[in-house]
Design a protein around this nucleic acid. Structure first.
Lengths: 230, 230
DNA sequence: AGGCGCTTGTGAAGGGGTGCACAAATCGCG
DNA sequence: CGCGATTTGTGCACCCCTTCACAAGCGCCT
């Protein structure tokens, strides 16, 4: 599930420090989750722990990488070499975790030909050829929202079935195509909501605030880590 | 909750096209969610719809912006002006959605003084002064993982209670501080998992694949939009 | 004024994830 | 060889979220 990559990152960190085995609680702390949850997650992959000892770090890394499909180094096509695209093209976190940015594409002729991190920006119309040459497995959209749907359609047309979308819009894709969306402004807005809620609570501790700010507390929880350790 | 910003974005898009009212189903489509879910979400804020008609776009925008605490323009401090930090500093999606990047900070002396998008990079040690001057409300960490915890501690020390963390590590913060994490590599790894699963299923449709790949299907669902429209 | 169609708001059922608590299993030590 | 300490794997209960379905309410047309 979605937590496996986090476990994998924690395992790599533990391996670098020299740990050969980890207890579920140790790994859970490193990944920021509950130990019971971690054990249940890992049990879904099979039994790779030893009771009384813990999990073999190396073995677990291999298993998770296999499940995540990281045994093959996947080729990524990045469409849109604007502000964000530039940063993504130069981000070394991709290479170090099993991905290879195989192509940079843009519709703007003035950007075509530019060289970034050893890769030349090509025109989006070359996508069909590039997709075959590099056997593209994942497409990343870093264009303005107005262009995102068209780019998605082109990616789907050349057989890409996984898309990471940074454009602030909803994409329509056929069945079988997976889309994950990352909207940086939305993350900030969610934090702003928490700020607003905290401010209302401290300002009006007795009344509990207005009806609008007195929303159920659990409402704030989705995917937010709060108050971990000290 | 976490979907409100998505609704807000969809509402702004509808307003630009000239819609004055929206039905729950119309807005749900624009936001990529179920209409019943949307109605239930909005009902938590109060009754702002008219039966038989729908929701008033302008009114709903105001209400959501109020709940999200966007009536005041929040000041953001961005720490770490590397590859990603540069892109974030230049990203205009923040300004257009209620946020103001008020300060750029970095620990590297060679980067201090650099000007990006009209803002001068200042040294991280100036954080206490900057925080007061600009009344910083949210901190964004775009440093390497090794520096992230120290930066988080400094942010907390100057009173920041909301942090957006782009570094691939778990942050420890005191109670009352909210942390949201965005890890670009993890997003790709989740897509890779889906790719791997799809590949296994099509390759071995009869047997259903190995035990490892035959994970429960629902396992794939978290936060992923799949097969929306055509 | 009355009826009809459309849309919201919500009760209830269902499903999935979460965390507790404990049995089963393994290792080390006496 | 046996016992205790330790840790995994999991049954169970709980809670929240999601979704369906429908009653209540509003506007429009006759």
């Amino acid at each position: 599930m979605a937590r496996l990559p986090e476990y994998l990152r924690a395992l790599h960190a533990l391996a670098e420090v020299g740990h050969e085995t980890v207890s579920s609680e140790g790994l859970a702390n490193a990944a920021g989750v509950n130990s019971a949850k971690l054990r249940k997650d890992l049990s879904h992959l099979g039994s790779y722990g030893t009771r009384g000892v813990g999990y073999d770090v190396g073995l677990l890394v291999d298993q998770i990488e296999f499940v995540l499909g990281l045994t093959q180094r996947r080729a990524v096509a990045l469409v849109g070499v604007g502000n964000l695209g530039h940063a993504l093209a130069g981000y070394d976190g991709f290479a170090s975790r099993g991905f290879r940015i195989a192509a940079l594409l843009d519709a703007e002729p003035s950007r075509v030909g530019e060289q970034i991190n050893g890769l030349v920006v090509r025109h989006i119309d070359e996508l069909p050829r590039v997709a075959v040459e590099e056997s593209i497995s994942i497409g990343v959209i870093a264009t303005p929202a107005s262009a995102a749907q068209a780019v998605a359609d082109q990616l789907v047309a050349v057989g890409v079935t996984s898309i990471l979308n940074f454009a602030p819009c909803v994409l329509s894709v056929p069945e079988g195509v997976d889309v994950r969306k990352v909207d940086l402004a939305i993350e900030l807005q969610i934090l702003s909501f928490h700020e607003h809620r905290k401010a209302s609570l401290t300002a009006l501790p007795a009344t509990g605030g207005s009806a609008l700010t007195a929303l159920p507390g659990g409402l704030a929880a989705t995917d937010t880590q709060e108050a971990i350790g000290t």
